[in-house]
Amino acid sequence: MSTTDHQSGWKNILLRYETLLLAVLVVEWLFFYHYGTTTNRRGVFVGFGTLDRQFDILRHSCEIGLLALALTPVILTAGIDLSVGSLLGLCAILFGKLWRDGGLTIPVAAALTLVAGALGGGLNAGLITVLRLPPLIVTLGTYSLFRGLAEAITHGAVTYTDFPASFLFLGQERWLGLPTQAWLFLPVAAAVWLLVHGTATGRSLRAIGFSPEGARYAGLPVERRVALVYVLSGFIAAVAALIYTARLGQAKADAGTGYELFAITAVVLGGTSIFGGRGSVTGTLLGVAAIAVLKSGLATLPVVIRLNAAEEMSGMLTGALLLLALTGSILPKILSTLRARRQAG
C-alpha cells in the first residue's frame, strides 16, 4: 500500500495492494467463466460471461457497495460504524411510511429519507465528537436503536409494498444500458473517491486516522472532519435504503440486517487499515467486486448447485479471504523480523 494519496509512477502502481486485488479478481472471474455451467435447470443460458450476469452482479452489490463506500472514510479516521445496516432498515421503513401513511409523493419521501439518514449519522457524529465516546460502542448502541425504531414503527409486522413502477424502475430496470441503480452508485463512488483522494479534507481524514492528537496540533478541525464522515455515512446508508426498497419492491424492518459486516469485510479486504490512515476507495470497490463475483460465480458451479450452498460457500470464502488479506498485510513485517533473526543467528 502506498502512503501517498497522489498515485504516480508505474512501479508504484504495480506494487500496490489494489493491483494484487485486481489480479485476484480477474483470476476469480476467469475461473468462474471457465468452470461455471452455462445453462440452468430449465435449459436457459445463464453463462457467467454474459453481460446480463455482470449487470446482475452490479445490481446485487449496489447496497453493500454503497455501505462499503460510506465506511471507507470512517475507517480511514480509525473509526467504525456498525449502525449502517440498521440505519438502512430504518430509512427503508421511514420511506415506506412517509409515502404510504404520510401520503407524500415519492420524491418528497425520498428527500426526507435522505435527511433522516444524515440525521441518524449526525447522532453518531454528535456522540463521538462532542462527548468523545468510542465509535465502536456508540455505533453498537445506535445499531440496536435504529433497528429497534424500525421494528417499533412497523410493530415488527408491517411491510410496505405496492410502490409505483416509476420507483421500482430504480431498482429493477435498466437505463441507458446499465441497471438503473448503477447511475446512483457510480456518482456516489466517484464523489467518495474524490473526497478521499482528491481533497484536503480527505488528507486530513488520513492524518486523523494516523494520529488524532497530531492532527489537532496541526490545526485541523478534527471534530468537524470526524462528524462529517459519520453524517456522510448515514446519508449514504439512506441512499442504499432507497435502492434496496426499489430492488425488492418492499420495505421491511429487517432490511439490511448483517449488511454492516459484509461492508466492513469489503473495506478491509480492499486494503484499508482498520487502525486508520491507510486505504483507498479503489481498493474498497475492488473488495466489493471480489465478494460480489465470488457470490454470483459460486452459484454457477455445478458442485455448488448440487449442494445448493452458494450463499454459505460465498460467506465462508469471503471470511477466509478476509483473514488471508489481513495475514498478507502483516506478512512484510513478519518476514523482516525473520530475516533479521536469521542474519543474527
Binding site: 494516523f210 494520529s211 490512515g277
Partner: peptide, 9 residues
C-alpha cells in the same frame, strides 16, 4: 506524538 505524523510522508 504531536509535532509530526510519523506515518505520513
Amino acid at each position: 506524538r504531536h509535532g509530526v505524523i510519523l506515518e505520513m510522508p
